[in-house]
């Protein structure tokens, strides 16, 4: 190993570590918010045992929109992966940065993203409006989940952060598997980069890219299902209280998940070996 590689490695390690700390910080703040505010919701409003039909209808219309956005994010993710893998050299710092982020985000189970989405709906939709002055209504039918655009964007962002990295990672993997010697078969015939991508790489990689897209979409659906499930449970259970410990354990899960991805990534970039832990 010459000194250049080690210096680049060290730089990459520092970048990855700082990303991890930022993500962990944000995650903890969000979780803390959820923890505090769901308690408020539970104690003041939901204990009134409302009926199932009290569920706010715009939860569903929002969810459909969010799922549509996830789908678009997947298409965009595929385009990003093509750009990263086919146009940027492996040493490019933007590519390294995005790959580091992707490695961390793909390591987070969709369950945790689902919880995050719930947190956003609960804490910013229900409670903020209630705590902010007007008297707490006695049944949930009176709790309108405000169609708040910031809320919607936060929700959409959560889903995008969940589906994009998976898409980018699987697409990059699919493209990477079509190695230069395979492509050379087309290049020696005078094909341009576009022709090679269109007539050789795409047909060979298509199935894997599609599979990656499906996996990403399944994450989105899983989170949506969880969101609906918990929401329903919350509005139909007598003591629909979110136990604080529930959120604490979830924070722990998020922490460990990010830690594990970071460890794998730094281990790989240190050039020793490739570890693929089962997910």
């Amino acid at each position: 190993m010459n000194s250049m590689t080690t210096r680049a490695e060290r730089k990459q390690k520092i970048v990855l570590q700082s990303i991890t700390f930022v993500i962990l910080g944000v995650a903890f703040i969000l979780m803390w918010n959820v923890l505090i505010k769901t308690r408020v919701v539970s104690m003041q409003a939901v204990s009134a045992a409302p009926l199932p039909n009290a569920m706010p209808t715009n939860l569903f219309s929002d969810l459909y929109l969010v799922l549509l956005m996830s789908f678009l994010a997947i298409l965009f993710g595929i385009a990003c992966a093509f750009y990263l893998q086919e146009w940027l050299p492996e040493t490019n710092w933007v590519r390294r940065l995005i790959e580091g982020l992707v490695a961390i985000l793909t390591g987070i189970p969709s369950l945790l993203f689902g919880i995050l989405a719930i947190g956003i709906f609960f804490s910013y939709a229900g409670t903020l409006k209630m705590i902010g002055g007007s008297p707490v209504p006695q049944n949930a039918e009176a709790i309108p989940v405000q169609h708040d655009t910031t809320l919607f964007y936060a929700e959409a962002l959560t889903f995008i952060l969940m589906v994009m990295p998976v898409t980018i990672k699987t697409t990059q993997g699919a493209l990477h598997s079509i190695a230069t010697p395979i492509r050379e078969a087309a290049y020696v015939l005078g094909a341009s980069k576009w022709q090679v991508l269109k007539r050789q790489v795409m047909p060979l990689a298509f199935t894997r890219i599609l599979a990656g897209g499906c996996r990403a979409m399944s994450r989105a659906f899983a989170a949506a299902a969880l969101l609906i499930g918990i929401y329903t449970w919350h509005y139909t259970t007598e003591s629909g209280k979110m136990p604080g410990r529930f959120m604490l354990f979830l924070s722990g899960a998020l922490f460990l998940s990010v830690l594990s991805s970071t460890l794998i990534e730094t281990h790989r970039s240190s050039g020793r070996n490739t570890v693929n832990l089962p997910r």
Partner: peptide, 27 residues
Amino acid sequence: YELRRRIGMVLPLPVGLPLSIYDNVAF
């Protein structure tokens, strides 16, 4: 690309393009 078409290259390991036999040759 023009240069590469002026030079025919047969590599040691055969790699089929993901196309029919006809389209391989017509590529």
